[in-house]
Amino acid sequence: MIKDNLFDCGHTACLGCGEALAAKRVLQVAGKDVITTDATGCLEVFTTRYPETSWGVPFIHSLFENSAAVASGIEAALKALGKADEVKVLAQGGDGGTADIGLQALSGMFERGHDVLYVCYDNEAYMNTGVQRSGLTPFDTATATSPAGKYSWGNEHRKKDIPAIAAAHGIPYVATSSVAFPRDIENKVKKALSITGPKYIQIHVPCPLGWRSKPENTIKIAMLAVKTGLFPIYEIENGDLTGVRKVSEPVPVEEYLKLQGRFAHLFKKDGGKDEIKKIQELADRNIKKFRLN
């Protein structure tokens, strides 16, 4: 049975889940002639509770760290079976499954040149296991394993730059996007699927549970991540920066941080202002690097 809706409602995602909104958008653009993989994580859990499924396209979840390798195998099989022209391959994963435990498999897929679009839904921590920090958790974020405390401002490390790592593989298309800009997601997925070879899109998706934000603020927060410069939206084609979403008047990072409980300690503890300054510097660096304004 082919469902009209390729990503059906009735799944068990939390209220205000950015990942669910983004995945639905990605699928609608990818269309029905696609085979999808997904790493272990929220998306797989909330869409495939046996005996139900949200997926109107062929879907396979194998393990946490092998979404890219399984997708490589699917692509190889399609080629061998003479179906590669008819069917596209879409690999998916969260930030942990992509940037940490799955990075090796992802690098292998890029290097081998498989005709696969890999989409990373970046909600900046291991949400499915209860909000532990990942390699994509931003600086000074309080998570279950990087709590703020008397001697801690939360996550000590900066967000790993996976798009740059992807681009360093010399793949034809790398992009970032945000659930705040559905049209941007659509355009990029469409463009990526028109290009042969490995493609990587990282979509910023707020998680109300993990970010301790109001579900109704998901889009607002995602929008502010872009407008502050903390999550720049850009495209890299064959190694060259070819497009950025301009931020004409950058918003101070406080406006973004104050809506989220994961940054609440920055507004309560002495010295928080200095920490916010450091985060502002990260945003300013992005604005300068990507010429956002």
């Binding site: 092998n66 699917i74 099989a77 498999a105």
Partner: peptide, 28 residues
């Protein structure tokens, strides 16, 4: 033989690739 030979970066991916290809209906 008309086959795809996929050189991978680890045995973990070798097993994952054949998992994906077999699941797509190809003898692996």
């Amino acid at each position: 033989v008309k086959a795809e030979f996929v050189n991978v970066e680890s045995e973990f991916s070798a097993a994952s690739v054949v998992l994906g290809s077999c699941a797509t209906g190809a003898r692996s």
